[in-house]
Design a protein around this nucleic acid. Structure first.
Length: 232
DNA sequence: CCCTGATTCGC
DNA sequence: GCGAATCAGG
């Protein structure tokens, strides 16, 4: 593509209109962003708020820092005078110690007339069949440290599991909610009696079956037993 | 990484 | 004159 009058005009217009070189190139078609910039500069359109040149002091001492051009010119390069570095003496107004605006609860102040901090108790959204209490999504434990990667080791019968509900102990009458993580020595299952009709006990039904919130009022889904935080 | 404009330099 | 390559900052 060549720079016809029309294209040059469009370029000029858009350039001055604030469009980015990419947009202009895209609009014109057939040219790259660089071509647009190059052309704009050749047209003398430069000087535009460039994000890369936000701050520019009227000092351009070293414009060519890296351009190893094997110039055969034996021109005696006069030693560049030590750049009159206008070292802006930063007004060291002393570094005030970062004073975190810690809001200390005044004990002597007004004795909380309003509601004191409610104890971390899961909001019960509804009661499910069998009597388990549904929690709202996100009402589980708050820290969500991802389980560190660990090698899965073959679950060997060991004293640590004695008394714990192992995989072999599972039946459709006991809660199969995992406790801990597979591969860990003490990994086992809940083992309580299930809430009839469910694979989990009443307590874990509350975790497994979340109340359905109206669309739009949803939060991130609660962590699943396996991938999520340690549940114990 | 993505984006931006600026600059250089071989064509 | 052109624009890819490169630079440099956000």
């Amino acid at each position: 593509m060549s720079w016809t009058d029309e294209r040059i005009e469009k370029l000029t217009k858009m350039w001055e209109g604030g469009s980015t070189a990419s947009q202009i190139a895209d609009e014109l078609g057939g040219v790259s962003r660089n071509a647009v910039i190059g052309k704009a500069h050749r047209l003398g359109l430069k000087a535009r708020p460039s994000p890369v040149k936000a701050n520019e002091k009227p000092a351009r001492p070293a414009p060519a820092p890296k351009k190893p051009k094997p110039e055969v010119t034996a021109a005696p390069e006069p030693a560049p005078a030590p750049a009159p570095r206008v070292e802006a003496p930063v007004a060291r107004a002393a570094a005030p110690a970062p004073q975190p605006p810690v809001q200390r609860a005044e004990p002597s102040s007004v004795p909380a007339a309003d509601a004191p901090a409610a104890p971390p108790q899961p909001r019960i959204v509804s009661v499910g069949p069998g009597g388990f209490l549904r929690q709202g999504p996100g009402d589980q434990q708050q820290p969500i440290p991802p389980a560190p990667p660990r090698r899965l080791v073959p679950a060997k019968p060991s004293p640590e599991i004695a008394g714990k509900t192992s995989l072999l102990d599972l039946s459709d009458r006991i809660c199969r909610w995992p406790m801990g993580h597979p591969g860990e020595p003490d990994f086992h299952f809940c083992g309580d009696k299930v809430n009839p009709g469910f694979p989990y006990c009443v307590e874990h039904c509350g975790r497994a079956y979340q109340a359905q919130l109206p669309r739009g009022a949803r939060r991130a889904p609660p962590p699943l037993p396996f991938g999520g935080p340690r549940v114990r």
